[in-house]
Design a protein around this nucleic acid. Structure first.
Length: 860
DNA sequence: GCAAGGTC
């Protein structure tokens, strides 16, 4: 009888590797999967009392993701309200990973499937994504319940993993379904609101400076989610009313050379009368009496083991890095083997974790050696107790490295991780607080100072070190000390400062917004979308856009942004997860509520719009006169801030423009199809530019011309700026590209591929350069005409012009064409610039001119 | 182009 094959699947490659090592007792063989991302670990063992062949592999997070079906992804033709009811489909989450194909290939011929996905609802959902791919190709030997099994584990330790293996259960379909429902609700609501408000506000205002005005349960709502926290703080600051308060300040002459400022026991009073009465009572005293001298030992606690959220907090507040970039760096440090897996919530070292072993690696380090030797010499090591969430061990260094191995920021993050690790296994910082109490008449005052006893962890985490010792003067009980001054000071309460990124992370963690993996994404989003800007000390200052949005929601439908709304949904989802509610009913009900709210929101958008009106300028106010409209011949406004647009105030039409780069007029030339003035877009990494017609760019004139094309993609037969007039040859570096003369590039003339990034410099300093109508008899490329001024001439044999020359074949040009392209051009090229092109049929465009009809006839 | 959730 042949062996049973047991396929096991973990949530990510790193976990598959650790699990395989534990379960095979280190005896597994590893090979890379065909998708390049996942590995397969194989070994022999026994399963259900029979010998078995184990294959442990993984997915990379979700296999599938939910999206609308094809036509509903078109913003132009779909009313956002339809998104609440239109069909959806599961698509591959990351097509390039070919996860479904990989799973079904590896699963072929297996008898058992054991699911080692993370033990949370998302993990349960991924279980079923895996089952969908694997089950159809498994050997059908037993009932499904006996062959598809779930391992439940809470720590990656030998004990836990082996116990899970011996106690496999059934995957929980209800929990998985609750995630399906969550996905559908988030998708439909998020996209409907985002599309509607993006279109609405971008169609009206020119200086929002954001390409997208998104809405999602983690981004916008008020007292819970990300932006809301920032705006809430902003509102507190703006509405803050400073209050006066009074403090009595006493200064005494403790010794001949030592003055002490005493603190009042009542700290401060908000009533002037009362404060003044106290002041009256003691202002004439000349001496203060020492009534108590005490000393107390205090500790500053060493940190717990490091988890992701704490790493992000410190990176932001201590290193000035955004959580997003900190995580990118941390992931790189992890894949290079310098640190352990950086995404974890756990702050407790596993029992079997070899702290001493890790420390010993650093004994000789120039940067950390002294601190490590100090810790090792202390004998016993007791880290603080943390929380074991059961995901991954805390973030620790894995390999010793020095500054030279890293770039600046990677080193700073690595340095922090090492110091945090050493700090977490060091003793607490201990210090002595000396306090002297004084009486001035009936009122009590005191002064205190700190003295360091043992720096403990602050030796290595030096930024946390105590301020220098404050030495207290040697005074005796009942001693009378002369008073220098008794003052009543009036002060004002001050508002809090803007929320720092690290405070925001704390708030998000506390309120359960996002996860360790998604917190940096949300924070990044609100700043990418220009809802907040990052100020000094990584303070998050909401922009006018962010403030208007949050206040707008509060005006239209505060419920939409209340935490109770989201938690009510969560409650319903939990009913599904617990099997106590009907999936379809709950989903339909939740979506219907939000659909009605959406309709109400759309109907009342003016309330939010009033806020926008007060703050932003309309498209016509914020744009500057730029080029002429083909429909009305008047000037259109160029709105330069994100997203760049052309707006015709007369036609009340807005045309989107290529992203990034800048725009110039193109010699006031007009598109022969629609009479719009042509523009020139300049941008891209190598200064690539192309002319384009702002109307054709949005409404392509021919079927084979894609939306967002410039004249370098236009196949119009007679236009002097279309492909037929400027195309020279096929690219050769990409399948369909054509090298097109950039008519504006002179005197540093260049041909640029209209598909890929290839640019070829030709005939530098030529005065004129144009594409001829003839083709090269040798290679079929279009020939060119070149003309130099005598003083800049680069042509040989005293010639200053050449007609009908081929940049690839003509010897007179061979020195003037960038070598790497010229040399191998001949063999690769041929076909010229697309024979047979330019035969497309124009599709009737209603606007802007009937000329289209003529042209369409021409093309047929 | 859109959500949030996994992870590469």
């Amino acid at each position: 009888m042949s062996k049973n094959v047991v396929l096991m699947v973990a949530e990510k490659p790193s976990l598959a590797a650790s699990l395989a090592k534990i379960l095979s007792n280190g005896s597994c063989h590893t090979r890379k999967g065909f998708n390049g991302a996942c590995s397969v670990h194989e070994w022999n063992g026994s399963f259900k009392g029979q010998s078995a062949y184990f294959k442990m592999t993984s997915v990379c997070g979700h296999v599938m993701s939910l999206d609308f079906t094809g036509r509903y992804n078109n913003w132009d033709s779909v009313d956002p309200v339809e998104l609440f009811t239109c069909p959806t489909e599961k698509k591959e989450a990351t097509p390039k990973l070919k996860m479904p194909a990989f799973l079904s290939q590896e699963a072929k011929g297996s008898n058992y499937l054991v699911l080692w996905l993370d033990c949370d609802k998302e993990g349960e959902n991924i279980c079923f994504e895996v089952i969908n791919e694997v089950e159809p190709v498994m050997v059908r030997s037993h009932r499904r319940e006996q062959t598809i099994l779930r391992a439940k584990f809470s720590a990656i330790t030998e004990k836990d993993i082996k116990a899970a293996m011996n106690c496999l259960v059934a995957p929980n379909e209800n929990e998985s379904k609750s995630v399906d429902a969550r996905q559908e609700i988030d998708l439909r609501i998020g996209c409907a609101f985002t599309r509607f408000q993006t279109r609405f506000f971008q169609g009206k205002y020119g200086n929002l400076d954001s390409t997208l005005i998104s809405y999602g349960p983690c981004q916008t709502p008020v007292s819970i989610p990300t932006l809301g926290f920032c705006v809430e703080r902003h509102d507190t600051i703006k509405t803050f009313q400073p209050e006066p308060f009074w403090v009595i300040q006493v200064s005494v002459q403790a010794t001949e050379f030592r003055k002490l400022n005493l603190e009042w026991e009542r700290v401060r009073l908000f009533d002037r009368e009362v404060a003044s009465t106290f002041h009256q009572k003691i202002k004439d005293y000349k001496q203060a009496k020492v009534v108590g001298i005490s000393q107390k030992e205090k500790v500053k606690q060493r940190p717990q083991a490091l988890n992701t959220v704490e790493l992000m907090r410190v990176a932001s507040s201590g290193l000035g890095m955004s959580p997003h970039s900190a995580m990118i760096i941390a992931e790189r440090l992890y894949t290079q083997g310098y640190i352990s897996y950086p995404r974890t919530e756990t702050t407790q070292y596993p029992e079997n974790f070899d702290i001493i072993g890790v420390l010993k690696q650093f004994r000789q380090s120039a940067d950390f050696g002294a601190d490590v030797r100090d810790v090792l010499s202390q004998g016993s090591i007791h880290p603080r107790k943390g929380q074991d969430i059961g995901d991954h061990p805390p973030i620790t260094p894995m390999t010793m490295a020095s500054r030279e191995s890293f770039d600046h920021d990677s080193w700073r993050l690595y340095d922090y991780i090492v110091r945090h690790f050493i700090g977490s296994v060091s003793p607490d910082c201990k210090y002595l607080v000396s306090r002297i109490d004084f009486d001035v008449g009936p009122e009590s005052f005191s002064v205190s100072g700190k003295k360091l006893l043992d720096p403990g962890f602050t030796r290595t985490m030096h930024w946390q070190a105590l301020s220098p010792d404050e030495h207290m003067p040697d005074l005796k009980q009942n001693q009378m000390v002369p008073i220098n001054e008794v003052k009543l000071n009036e002060r004002l309460t001050s508002p809090p400062d803007y929320l720092t990124e690290s405070e925001l992370i704390t708030l998000m963690e506390k309120h359960g917004i996002g996860t360790d993996a998604s917190i940096p994404v949300h924070i990044n989003n609100i700043s990418q979308r220009n809802y907040v800007t990052v100020g000094n000390g990584r303070k998050l200052i909401p922009t006018a856009l962010g403030i208007s949005l949050v206040h707008g929601y509060q005006r239209i439908d505060p419920q939409l942004v209340l935490p109770t709304m989201r938690s009510a949904v969560e409650e319903q989802l939990n009913l599904i997860a617990k099997g106590r509610g009907n999936y379809d009913e709950i989903l339909r009900h939740a979506l219907e509520i939000f659909r009605l709210k959406f309709i109400y929101f759309v109907q009342h958008i003016e309330s939010m719009d009033h806020l926008f009106e007060d703050t932003f300028s309309t498209l016509s106010q914020s744009g500057r006169n730029f080029s002429r409209c083909g429909a009305c011949r008047r000037f259109m406004k160029l709105v330069a801030s994100k997203p760049a647009r052309l707006h015709c105030p007369n036609c009340d039409a807005t045309y989107s423009l290529p992203a990034g780069g800048s725009f110039k007029l193109f010699n006031e030339l007009k598109c022969p199809l629609d009479e719009f003035e042509l523009l020139l877009w300049v941008g891209g990494p190598n200064g690539k530019g192309y002319p384009f017609c702002p109307y054709c760019y949005v409404y392509p004139p021919f079927r084979e011309m894609k939306k967002g094309s410039g004249c370098n993609q236009c196949t119009h037969p007679s236009c002097t700026y279309g492909l037929n007039a400027t195309g020279v040859a096929s690219c050769g570096e990409c399948p369909n590209g054509i090298l097109v003369l950039d008519p504006t590039s002179g005197p540093k003339w260049q041909l640029a591929c209209n598909q890929c990034q290839v640019v070829i410099k030709v005939c530098e300093d030529a005065n004129k350069l144009s594409v001829a109508s003839s083709t090269c008899p040798e290679c079929d490329a279009r020939q060119i005409n070149v003309e130099y001024r005598p003083e800049k001439n680069k042509l040989a044999n005293g010639l200053t012009k050449v007609k009908d020359a081929c940049i690839f074949c003509s010897p007179e040009l061979s020195e003037l064409v960038e070598k790497r392209y010229a040399s191998h051009a001949k063999s690769k090229r041929g076909g010229g610039r697309g024979r047979g092109r330019g035969r497309g049929r124009g599709r009737g465009r209603a606007k802007p001119k009937d000329k289209m009809a003529q042209l369409a006839a021409y093309f047929v």
